[in-house]
Simulated assay, not measured.
Amino acid sequence: MVTKTEMPNPLHTELDLYSADDLIDVLIEDQRNALKAVWDSREKLAEAVRQALPRMRDGGRLIYVGAGTSGRLGLMDSVELYPTFSWPKHRAIALMAGGSRAIGESIEGAEDDERQGASDILSVKAAANDVVLAIAASGRTPYVLGALRAARRAGALTIGLANNPDASVVTEAHIGIVLDTGPEVISGSTRLKAGTAQKIALNSFSSALMVGLNKVYGNLMVDLRPTSAKLIHRSVNLTTHATGASDELARRTLESCGFQVKVAIVALKRGIGVTEAESQLAAVDGSVRRAIAK
């Protein structure tokens, strides 16, 4: 059966005759369908966040599973959670068909190995508090389905993302999210708008999840991990913006608490020491807003 993502696009049957200007126009315009597809799935994405939150609060992990472009997008989302939200690295795992080699090259046949998908899930000991995101444009990739089925047997919450309606990844997951992007401008090249839709959906899911886990104050990313000079500078800016303190005072307070922006904000807003600020945050599950209001 030919899926929608693999069908030739009837609007651009002579794509190879287009000028460079027309090619760029068409390729960009078609990306609008990616945003629409994610928008249409927003209720399912919100439900996924609601069901994932209590599992994350109980110590669960996010486990991303995919092959090819889908696997790399899952990997990207997983690795960005640590510097952005201080999400522990061991609680954001990316499994890819073909293993780490597949990050930079195509591993022939890896995506067709359903047993390996199941084995990889078993190797990370997926359990009831874990959330497994199974990502496949076609929705029928054997590696991803093997992982999804093994995750369900292990009791993990499974979230399936696919770009084709009624695909197995969607129908077999606890929460199936259809990102119906239709045929690609270049037939079957799901690195185009199908991939864009997956990226938006994953960004939206993980960002909303982190907000729910008190990683954001207002709209400020106050639980970032300053792993570079740029992020140290950003930490100072976030602290001054949230508290009105001078750059000098903000930096001095940040230095005294290992550049924990949340701690510095509470200390400065409450006029207390950083040790007391840490205790206040711990008592309210890391919520800056609640710690300030105490």
Rank of each mutant, 00 (worst) to 15 (best):
S256L: 07
S86Y: 14
N9W: 09
F205D: 15
S106W: 04
V79Y: 03
L17W: 08
W39T: 00
K193C: 13
R270N: 14
I121P: 01
A197G: 09
L53H: 11
V284D: 08
G258F: 14
Y82E: 09
S70R: 06
R32C: 08
D21K: 15
S78W: 05
V261W: 03
A156D: 06
L53W: 14
P165V: 11
A229N: 07
G71V: 09
L268F: 03
D120V: 10
N237Y: 08
E184M: 08
R115V: 13
D58S: 11
R152T: 06
A264W: 00
G74R: 07
A156M: 08
A127C: 13
Y143A: 03
S106F: 00
R50Y: 06
L23H: 01
V49A: 02
S235E: 05
A126R: 04
K36N: 12
A67P: 02
R252W: 00
L231K: 05
A52S: 15
V284Y: 08
T190L: 04
D112A: 04
S207C: 08
R252P: 01
K89L: 15
L17K: 15
R152E: 06
P54L: 12
T141F: 05
H241L: 13
N203V: 15
A154D: 01
I200H: 04
R57G: 08
G99M: 01
A147S: 03
A147H: 02
T158W: 02
L81D: 11
L157N: 13
Y18S: 01
G286T: 14
L268N: 00
L220Y: 14
L157Y: 13
E278Q: 09
N9G: 03
H90W: 10
E111Q: 02
E278L: 08
L23S: 04
A162Q: 10
R153G: 01
T3D: 01
D112Q: 04
